[in-house]
Amino acid sequence: MKDYFVLRVMAKLLIPFILLFGFYVQMHGDYGPGGGFQAGVIIAAALILYAIVFDVGPARRVAPMWMLVALSCIGVLLYASVGVATMMAGGQFLEYGVLAHDPAHGNHLGILIIEIGVGVAVAAAMLMIYFSFAGRR
């Protein structure tokens, strides 16, 4: 679809804003609607738009498959390692209260970190799925 001038320009205009919105949703999930799941899907959607308009090849160069596999592993491990860290700090698995002096603070911190883990894992997994479908042609 890269022959269509309007599509190309609009996609280039929109993609930075979609990415920015994805990060906003990721970080602002505590105060408004949003969180790791949504942010992951939105960030994946930005790259998928790029892949649809400019063909899959360039998009796969931006995010090669080995990187996506590694990223989704990192996301899941980040989540699990927060649980291990809380156990190290003397709490139970995924009991974030022990991460800081104030339990509420610790909880907030823990939620933020695991949401990042969720976002990374979901975005990478969705892109993996999309690229394996799109790469079949």
């Binding site: 505590d30 949003g34 969180g35 698995f93 995924l94 509420a104 909880n107 907030h108 939620i111 695991i114």
Partner: peptide
Amino acid sequence: AQTGVPNVVTSVLASYRGF
């Protein structure tokens, strides 16, 4: 009060139902 997160959905998702 317990998590410092006003969005209850997020706090339940990540904290109370973390597993």
